[in-house]
C-alpha cells in the first residue's frame, strides 16, 4: 500500500525555487532516509508532506487521499478540516524537539489525544505510560521538558507523536541538535520503530544510521533527487559524481 505519494513537488520562497520537482513514493513499512547538504531542500521537502510548507507545484497523496494537487496549473489543497484529518496520519519529530514547556512529560503525551481525539484521560494514560516505558523515560513522567537532556527531550517528542497512533512518522534531522553521545539513545528509539515496521521518512546527517536502518536512500541536492536507491548502492557504489563527492565529504 502506498502510504505517501509525492509527485513533482515544487516549492518557491519568493523568487527562489528550493524544490524543483521531487517524487517520492513510500510503501507501508518502508524506511526512507533523505540525505544531502544543508540548504539542499531535504527538510523543506519533508515539511511539504504534512503541509508545514505549502507547495507551489505537484501533488501529495497520503494513504490514497489527496492532500494537495494541481488543478489548471494551480495547487489546490483539501479543505482545512480534511487536510488536518489526512495529516493526522503522520506524526512528526523536529530537530528542535518543540515540546510544550508548560506541560509535564506526561501532559505533553496526552494533550493531543485528549484535545484532538477527545479521548478520556483514563483511556490514553495507559497508552502514554507504555510509550514512555518504550522510550525508557517512565521515571520522567512528571518532569518538565526543561529538566531533561536533549536526548531525553527528543525521545519524549517521539513518544508524543506516537501517542496519536500515526501510520507514518516523519523525522526532521532528529539528532542534529544533540551532543554525539546523546544521539545514540534517540537512534535506538528510531531503530526500534523500524523493527516494528513503522513507515518512516527520516531526514538525517547520520550516514551510518541511514545505511543501517533505511530500505531506500534519497540523495537530494539543489532541490532535486540526484540519486535514489538501496543503501548498499548509494553508500557502496554511488553512480553520480555529486553523490560521491558528498559522501566523501561526510566521511
Amino acid at each position: 500500500m502506498e502510504m505517501i505519494k509525492a509527485v513533482g513537488i515544487r516549492k518557491s520562497f519568493k523568487d527562489v525555487e528550493v524544490l524543483k520537482g521531487i517524487d517520492l513514493t513510500v510503501n507501508k513499512g518502508e524506511v526512507i532516509a533523505i540525505i544531502g547538504t544543508s540548504g539542499s531542500g531535504k527538510s523543506t521537502f519533508l515539511r511539504c508532506l504534512n503541509r508545514l510548507e505549502v507547495i507551489t507545484g505537484g501533488s501529495v497523496t497520503i494513504e490514497g487521499e489527496q492532500l494537495a494537487g494541481e488543478e489548471n496549473g494551480r495547487v489546490v489543497y483539501a479543505s482545512e478540516a480534511e487536510a488536518r484529518r489526512i495529516c493526522s496520519k503522520m506524526g512528526m519529530v523536529f530537530q528542535q524537539f518543540n515540546l510544550f514547556p508548560h506541560m509535564t512529560v506526561m501532559e505533553n503525551l496526552i494533550e493531543a489525544p485528549m484535545i484532538v481525539k477527545k479521548m478520556k484521560r483514563e483511556e490514553i494514560l495507559p497508552i502514554a505510560e507504555n510509550l514512555l516505558a518504550k522510550v525508557g523515560l517512565s521515571a520522567k513522567a512528571d518532569s518538565y521538558p526543561s529538566q531533561l537532556s536533549g536526548g531525553q527531550k527528543q525521545r519524549v517528542a517521539i513518544a508524543r507523536a506516537l501517542a496519536m497512533s500515526p501510520d507514518i512518522m516523519l523525522f526532521d534531522e532528529p539528532t542534529s541538535a544533540l551532543d554525539p553521545e546523546l544521539t545514540v539513545e534517540v537512534l535506538k528509539t528510531i531503530r526500534d520503530l523500524a523493527k516494528e515496521k513503522m513507515t518512516m521518512v527520516i531526514v538525517t546527517h547520520e550516514m551510518a544510521f541511514a545505511r543501517e536502518v533505511a530500505n531506500r536512500v534519497l540523495f537530494v541536492d539543489g532541490g532535486r533527487v540526484v540519486e535514489e536507491g538501496c543503501p548498499e548502492e548509494i553508500f557502496g557504489n554511488p553512480k553520480q559524481e555529486r553523490t560521491r563527492a558528498f559522501l566523501n565529504n561526510m566521511l
Binding site: 488536518r84 503522520m90 512528526m92 528542535q96 515540546l99 484535545i115 484532538v116
Partner: peptide, 23 residues
C-alpha cells in the same frame, strides 16, 4: 512564542483555536 510550538501543535492535529487556547 516560537514557531516550532505552532508547528508541533499542527502536526498533532490541533486547530488554530486549540493551539491558541492550550499551547
Amino acid at each position: 512564542i516560537e514557531r516550532g510550538q505552532y508547528e508541533a501543535a499542527k502536526t498533532l492535529g490541533m486547530t488554530y483555536v486549540q493551539t491558541m487556547r492550550r499551547i
